[in-house]
């Protein structure tokens, strides 16, 4: 667990080149570390708990498909996107070649590109270096994305990378351990428990994404995404999520233009 504090120190040193006074620098480091710890404490929250229940289900899925405990835990830490993990295990048990499996995973993970692109302008501070963002972006998946979008508005801009480093690393590490533990204990629940657990995730995403919206365009994007998805899934199941994103984005931008034009006319 030495890595996270080191990265914070590293950031502090980059800043020190610009601001000579030593004591101010120490303060900055302390503030960064306390924001990092505040991110770590995000593990004790409703969304973090919901994500852990989703990984309980994943551990069972991995063991049913002959993936070992260590391999399943390694997948969670290195890939850190539950749909990609499930696709990869499906490809493994289906006997796919390495290239075939990689293509299937790449298709399921394209969605991370627009998500990360929208997250970066919220995450970065005025002095954040690109290498910091490239290291931190690994921890962006749907839950961390929703949590970050919701909580960043209460966090000073220059402390957001420290906060997210704490939050992202703790979520990833904890869930890798949850998978290992559940696998080891081979915990089994009646199907109704799994059904109830699997329903927590969409309800959490739905309400917290709605609540995190700072303007109406987010609500328009959400409603269009929810309504367009079944239609697009029916037409093009392989690209449903990506196409839903773009179609919903177009609807939202049309709304934004319309609202702006109406505002100017009034």
């Amino acid at each position: 667990m030495l890595a996270p504090p080191l990265r914070v120190i590293d950031d502090g040193m980059a800043d020190s080149a610009l601001s000579p006074p030593q004591d101010q620098d120490d303060d900055d480091l302390k503030t960064r570390f306390s924001w990092f710890l505040s991110g770590v404490s995000g593990i004790i929250s409703v969304p973090a708990f919901i994500l852990m229940t989703a990984h309980v289900g994943f551990a069972g899925f991995a063991s049913e498909n002959g993936v070992s405990l260590l391999q399943a835990s390694f997948m969670v830490a290195t890939i850190w996107a539950l749909p990609a993990n499930i696709v990869l295990i499906g490809a493994i048990s289906g006997g796919y070649s390495l290239v075939g499996a990689a293509i299937a995973v790449a298709l399921s993970s394209i969605r991370l590109m627009p998500m990360v692109a929208a997250f970066i302008p919220e995450l970065r501070g005025p002095k954040t270096r690109k290498i910091t963002l490239l290291l931190l972006c690994h921890f962006i998946a749907v839950t961390a994305w929703v949590m970050g979008m919701e909580r960043f508005q209460h966090i000073p801009r220059n402390m957001r990378t420290s906060y997210f480093a704490g939050l992202g690393m703790t979520l990833t590490l904890t869930n890798s351990l949850v998978v290992a533990l559940v696998y080891f204990l081979s915990t089994d629940f009646p199907p109704i428990v799994f059904a109830a657990l699997f329903f927590l995730t969409p309800m959490y995403f739905l309400t917290s994404l709605w609540g995190s919206a700072r303007d109406r365009s987010i609500h328009v994007a959400m409603v269009s995404g929810l309504l367009l998805f079944p239609l697009i899934h029916h037409l093009a199941p392989a690209y449903d999520l990506l196409l839903t994103g773009f179609a919903g984005g177009i609807v939202t931008m049309a709304y934004v233009r319309w609202a702006k034009a109406r505002g100017q006319a009034a």
Binding site: T201, G249, T252, M253
Partner: peptide, 29 residues
């Protein structure tokens, strides 16, 4: 920025719809 955020939000809404309409595992039944 608004456009990128709109695409990402609609996409996450798609994930929500997928989890409710086409779930996997025990919920699928």
């Amino acid at each position: 920025l608004i456009a990128v955020r709109a695409v990402a939000t609609a996409l996450v809404a798609g994930v929500i719809a997928q989890l409710i309409l086409y779930p996997s595992g025990s919920l699928a039944e």
